[in-house]
Nucleic acid binder design. Structure first.
Lengths: 357, 357
DNA sequence: TCACAAAATGAAAACGTTTGCATTTTTGTT
DNA sequence: AACAAAAATGCAAACGTTTTCATTTTGTGA
């Protein structure tokens, strides 16, 4: 593949601010000898125009290098063909798959994605939502259920289709597609309990403004409570979403005496850190300690040993979210079902083993 | 943080397709008792309007919940306030940091990001570029230099500012900001050579349509050639960008007899796979084998042992790309410098050791 | 070939801003 | 207080489409 010579370095060209040369629908119409209405229809509703006319127009458009201006169309019919996706962060593994799936599914519908990250800052989220609304997105997907009332107000007032992704709730005020994080946490802890572990450490990220983490933590605590297990404060560790930090905290945890027999991590990133910490301290997994995560990120399966975790179908969530949102935008109706749960699955790999008796 | 009750599930509301209620600049003008021109100026050039008038307008806008329509503005002055970023893939670690940085820097300029991934498919890239052009982006960042001529033609014809990101070239036909991948590869191989290794395996992704990988591979081969080392075919392994695949290939490599003393990986993902493979096979790093990567992804530092690799400043590239592109769009001039190189750095961590004599 | 229905096309009015130019108001100077 | 200059505001014409409604063309059956 050859690179195209775009711009002559010697001749210091100026990007024309006017884009004067760009042909519009009028030029195409003139060249094809039809009215602009017909040209417009050729691109927006092709089967309304007779084949011979259409090919003539298409040829003219091709020759002129015409590219339709969707902004102009959006102005008239209120549909920009652009959907918004707001995530806490892009550059961590959790959401990357979701984003990619969302974006590529949108492409199937000839829509594009405006994306922004707020870094768990709800004020920034408000600014982002506003900015997206200024671009007249046709719909918006937000991660989870914790949002600033003012964001929701803006969206509600403009009647913009909204969907909550990633987390599932049986009943919610906005439609959602996601996994049951409570169940995910209970399932993985159940697994650990079934293996006979009773002394376990819990590493979870900050649960403020993060319903996913909160649900998981609650799930873990419920399951343990049901089993009659109380978690002492020093076994409930707050850990940021960061491999390095997790590793540091777990090294402290496992190097001292009175090490737990299992570590339950709020997500796979923390679990990765935990695994590395054990390598570093010479603690064998799973013989000396069992480790579980939640999420099943890319790479978790290939760790040595493979990480026991809960598969969260990020791609599936992204795909469904995209098509649901497009449908909402097209039909103007809330989706059916309103709340959509995607299946989770326990991935029982090598990082867990029955406690020795 | 409390979730806001956005939509009453019992009352199956309809998203009004018309968005009839949404107030425009006219309603704001009426309520504030000024002309629409003044309202427009209040938002686009605030200091052209007297303070008392401005606050009056702002209050009116607030009360009505006015959100300006940038599409309408774009129609008039040809600036959408939206920049495009086209990457091969979103959901792999390489580009996530870049994307996040690009996006958040754009936010500082009150711009938004339209992003799309083409999965190394140049035809899809063409479609994406077209789609972005239809949305009248103010500029576009493309990864690397391998692009379809037709994409570049479209961009050139519309005079859209373009920048190539990630890879650096001393001389290029479009402005670029990136790292010197040849140098990166040479540096890391030099390090391995300096440690006395002569028998090394090379794992690189497919270099077609991927100038970054190509540059790295060339860098490695040049450096080896200069040292008089010829790489036998079975030591030059093609490996996809995938931990699992890398792990599988490396297990084969190190389990048999005649294992190399070092593995040079085209990127850190492959290196991760290589490390896990060695764990799985009981091959000790670095004592039995040295492993190096290129990229220094999130997590590479925390592997056990820490991965020796080359730091590629993805955030920095993203930031610079965003501000450069905005500047190009604002001034209409090519950037100065035209080609921008960001520094790389050898991260000498625990995965390498001098070969035993 | 004609009449008529159906399909294709055209004319023109939106859509919600921005901006050049004209007009009004404010400010500063005497 | 009067005047000129400067600043603020208003008017109205774009911007490039889509769409409604009217008109023309095409197709069909007798």
């Amino acid at each position: 593949m050859q690179t195209f010579s775009f711009c002559d370095k010697n001749h210091l060209m100026r990007y024309s601010k006017s884009r004067k040369g760009a042909p519009g629908i009028v030029e195409v119409a003139a060249r094809a000898g039809v009215s602009i209405a017909t040209v417009s229809r050729t691109f927006s509703q092709p089967d309304m125009v007779r084949a011979p006319t259409r090919v003539r127009i298409e040829r003219a458009a091709d020759e002129l290098g015409y590219i339709r201006n969707r902004a102009a169309g959006a102005l008239h019919n209120r549909f920009s063909g652009t959907l918004g996706l707001v995530v806490p962060t892009i550059d961590n593994a959790i959401f990357a798959e979701l984003i990619e799936a969302f974006s590529s599914r949108l492409r199937d519908f000839d829509r594009t994605m405006l994306i922004a990250a707020h870094g768990y800052d709800l004020d920034l989220e408000v600014a982002i939502v506003r900015s997206l609304l200024e671009r007249r997105i046709d719909g918006i997907a937000l991660v989870g259920f914790d949002h600033a009332p003012v964001s929701m107000n803006m969206l509600q007032q403009r009647d913009v289709p909204v969907i909550s992704v990633w987390n599932f709730r049986e009943v919610s005020n906005i439609p959602c597609v996601g996994a049951d994080n409570v169940a995910a946490a209970r399932t993985v802890v159940r697994h650990v309990l079934d293996l006979g572990h009773r002394d376990m450490a819990l590493l979870f990220p900050d649960v403020a403004s993060n319903d996913r983490a909160r649900d998981r933590m609650n799930g873990v605590l419920e399951e343990l409570h049901q089993e009659g297990i109380k978690v002492p404060p020093d076994r409930l560790i707050s850990c940021p979403y960061d491999i390095g930090e997790a590793k540091r905290l777990v090294r402290d945890l496992v190097s001292g005496s009175g090490r737990p027999t299992a570590i339950v991590c709020g997500n796979d990133i923390i679990a990765h850190g935990a695994v590395y910490a054990c390598y570093a301290e010479g603690v064998r997994i799973p013989d000396d300690i069992s480790i579980v995560g939640i999420g099943d990120f890319r790479g978790s399966a290939h760790l040595e040993p493979g990480l026991t975790t809960i598969r969260m179908p990020a791609r599936r969530i992204g795909n469904i979210a995209a098509s649901t949102l497009v449908e909402m935008s097209d039909t103007g109706m809330p989706p059916d079902p309103f709340n959509r749960k995607v299946e989770i699955e326990l991935k029982d790999r090598g990082s867990t083993i029955a406690v020795k008796v």
